[in-house]
Structures are given as C-alpha cells and as structure tokens.
C-alpha cells in the first residue's frame, strides 16, 4: 500500500488509463477484500438454502407433498406432517401482530407528534429495552411466572365465553397457561420495538409543511394524523408490520418455552399448541434419520416464509420511502 509506482514517461499525464494503472496492488487488494466481504452475505444466504434443503431431502422423498400438507406428526410412527406447525406459526404470528401493531403505532405517533424531541428520547430507550431482554429470558419469565399467573384469567374468560358462538370457539376451554395466546403475547412484546422504530421512521418522512397546513386549517392533532400522516405513511407502515410478522414467525426460544408443546390444530387460542421454530428447538437434539430431516424441512419452510415476508416488506418500505422523497 505504501509503494508508489512511478508512472512511465510514455504515459500521458491525466488520461484515465494512467490513473487506473497507477493504482498500487494494496489498493486493489483492499477493494477485492471489501467486495468479498460484501458478497459473503449473498454466499451465506445461498449456502443456507442449499445445505438445509439437502438435509431435508430424505424427509421429502419419504413423505412427498402429501407429507408436507399432512397434519399427522408422530415421530414414534415415522409420520412427519408439517401442517400442524405451519398452522401454529401462523396463529402465534397473527396474535403477535394484532396485539403489537396498534400499540407500536400509538407509541410511534406519541414520539413523532405529541411529545417534544427532548422527551421522546427516554421513551425510545425504554421501548428498545424490550428488545434488549434476551428471548430466553422472556421464555423463562413466561413459563415460570407469567403462565401460572395468567392461566386463572384464561380460565375465567374461557368459562364466561364458552357458550358464545364465535368467541367460545376462540377463547373457550380448554385453557392452559402455556398456550398459543401466551406465545403470541410474548412475541408481541418482543416485536414491538422494531415495529415502533420502523413506523417512526416512516412517519418522520411526512413533510412538515403538510402537517402545518392541516393545523392552519384548524384541524385537531387527531384530525391531522388521520388526514395527513396516515395517507402519507400507510404504505411504509404496512412494510413495518410485515417486518414484525417476519420476526414473530421466526422467534424461537420464547415460543418454544411457553407455547405448550402440543402438536394439535385447534381454534382455541388459550389451548396449548406448537409452531415451527419451537418444534425444531425442542426436538432436534433427540432426532435422527427421517425425523431430523423432517425438522430440517420445517427449517427450510420457515426460512422460505421469512425470506418472502422480509423481501416483500423491505420492498414496500423502500418504495414508499422513494415516493416520499419524490413528493
């Protein structure tokens, strides 16, 4: 890097070739190194796809498409249907989103529209603390403290709503502290910081002049939010919500501890269930052969789902950010 190559007298000064030829080896080496580090991201993603799919082939060849869509998961009988866990993943992720999104949006609006910037910072720190608490600590708290405490509440809600047509099917008995709902609730706490911070970024792109225009017309703050902030930012907020959905789908350890570990498909949200990351975490250690391959297959499906959700959400966010800049 320190060597300075002498430009030959034949090279005319100022031409483009002369400049590029004069670049020392160290300079070019550094560029290649940086490029390699950048490409590593793509290499890892491709390798994840290839290696895990390879491990899952023996499951796929024994069970086929029918196996993937089967709901029969019984390792003792060599039956590995994936649908129970896909269902559980969808249910817990939806519960998490339904609970986390209104709260996150309200906090994002609080931070951008209500409190002054100086007082917003401590609120941001507190919300971010939710993400600093490790997943396994949420799980430990969930299974040893929260689930025993909440099961009485579930039981009384269940007995109150048991006879009501639709609500009874969702919230009626059987109830248990470790359940779909507990898992969804804890996932909601965990994804709130990311949904809040992304929504806040999106809302911050709303031009100040539009806000002031609405206020000048006599709008209240809430009318301004509905009339100016929402139309400007709902696209980006959809992206933020999708990103939260991706996180909720893949979050493993907290769900593995509090979901109840029961591979059943049921509409009862207060009943124990199972989802894809939880079953991988809980059963991988004692698995082998087709069993292990099936868990790998669940991993491949989870990887595919989260990649799709994430690509989609990032694209939505990027598009709405571009539109904002153009406006």
């Amino acid at each position: 890097m320190s060597t300075v190559t002498q430009a030959g007298p034949a090279v005319p000064a100022g031409s483009a070739e002369a400049l590029s030829e004069r670049r020392p080896l160290g300079d070019r080496g550094f560029q290649v190194l940086a490029l390699a580090a950048g490409l590593l991201v793509l290499v890892i993603l491709v390798l994840i796809a290839i290696s895990t799919t390879q491990q899952a082939t023996s499951w796929f060849t024994t069970e086929g498409f029918k196996g993937i869509f089967s709901t029969n998961w019984n390792p003792a009988a060599n039956k590995f249907g994936a649908m129970t866990f896909v269902y559980g993943t969808a249910i817990t992720a939806v519960i998490a989103i339904v609970l986390a999104v209104p709260v996150s949006l309200a906090i994002a609006l609080l931070l951008t529209e209500v409190v002054p910037r100086r007082r917003a910072r401590p609120i941001v720190y507190v919300v971010d603390l939710l993400a600093v608490v490790p997943s396994v600590v949420w799980g430990l708290w969930g299974i040893l403290v929260f689930a025993p405490w909440v099961q009485h509440i579930y039981a009384s809600i269940g007995s109150a709503l048991g006879g009501v047509p639709v609500l009874g099917a969702l919230f009626g008995p059987p109830t248990s502290g470790a359940s779909f709902f507990t898992a969804g609730l804890i996932l909601a706490f965990m994804i709130t910081p990311i949904v809040t911070s992304l929504s806040r970024e999106v809302i911050a792109t709303v031009p100040a002049i539009d806000r002031e225009g609405a206020y000048a017309l006599g709008a209240t703050r809430w009318e301004m939010i509905r009339g100016v902030v929402w139309p400007h930012s709902h696209g980006g907020i959809v992206g933020a919500v999708l990103l939260g959905l991706g996180r909720a789908m893949g979050e493993t350890i907290a769900a593995a501890l509090v979901i109840g570990s029961s591979p059943v498909i049921t509409s009862h949200l207060f009943a124990p269930g199972y989802n894809m990351p939880a079953v991988i975490a809980n059963q991988f250690g004692e698995s082998s052969g087709v069993f292990r391959s099936a868990l790998m297959g669940l991993g491949v499906m989870l990887f595919a789902f989260t990649i799709i959700v994430n690509v989609f959400s990032r694209a939505v966010v990027a598009r709405s950010a571009r539109r904002m800049r153009g406006a």
């Binding site: 993603l45 994840i48 996180r247 893949g250 493993t252 990887f303």
Partner: peptide, 24 residues
C-alpha cells in the same frame, strides 16, 4: 442488491443460522 439482501438477512430467524452451521 447486497445492501437489500443484508437487510433481508437481519430478518432470517436465528434458529436457521443454527441449523445452517449444524449442517455445514
């Protein structure tokens, strides 16, 4: 493209990283 995929990669569940390293 790399920047976009790095963003996407932050959303890959951590358990997948475990399965990946287990495999390779």
């Amino acid at each position: 493209f790399i920047a976009f995929m790095a963003d996407v990669m932050t959303g890959v569940p951590s358990i997948i990283m475990g399965l990946f390293i287990f495999t390779i």
